[in-house]
C-alpha cells in the first residue's frame, strides 16, 4: 500500500531548509534555475543539486526550453504525506468508536 522508501526520500528532501525554500518558490509557479539562483544566496551548482534531490523524491519536474530548464512542483509528489493523514484520520475515527463502546461496558469501580 505504501512505500517506505518514497517517504524517506520526501522527508529527506524537505528536511533541508534551502530545499524547502526552493520547493516553496516553485509551489507559486514554474521557475528556471537562474531565477532560483537569483532569488537565493546559493550557487547555481548547489541549486541544481537541490533540484535533483527534489526531482528524485518526485516532488518537482523539469522541462527544457532552449538553454533553460524550467522546474515546477509535481502535485502528486506529496501523496505519501497525504496518505498518512488520511490513514490516521480513518484509524482514529475507528478507534475512538471502539473506545466509546468500551466505555459503555466498562464498570465504574
Amino acid at each position: 500500500m505504501r512505500s517506505a522508501a518514497a517517504e524517506d526520500l520526501i522527508f529527506h528532501a524537505l528536511a533541508d531548509p534551502s530545499r524547502r525554500a526552493i520547493f516553496e518558490s516553485l509551489v507559486r509557479g514554474e521557475l528556471a534555475v537562474k531565477d532560483l539562483t537569483a532569488r537565493f544566496d546559493i550557487s547555481q551548482p548547489a541549486v541544481s543539486q537541490h533540484l535533483a534531490t527534489l526531482r528524485n523524491a518526485g516532488l518537482v519536474s523539469g522541462r527544457s526550453e532552449g538553454r533553460c530548464i524550467y522546474y515546477r512542483v509535481e502535485p502528486k509528489g506529496l501523496k505519501p504525506l497525504a496518505d498518512w493523514l488520511s490513514h490516521y484520520r480513518a484509524f482514529w475515527t475507528d478507534r475512538l468508536g471502539r473506545l466509546d463502546a468500551l466505555l459503555e461496558k466498562l464498570e465504574d469501580p
Partner: peptide, 18 residues
C-alpha cells in the same frame, strides 16, 4: 518558518493529489 510559510499552498496541493 519555511515549512509554515507553505501552509495554505500545501493543503491545496494535498487536495489535488487525491
Amino acid at each position: 518558518y519555511g515549512w509554515n510559510l507553505m501552509g495554505g499552498r500545501l493543503i491545496e496541493l494535498l487536495g489535488r493529489t487525491t
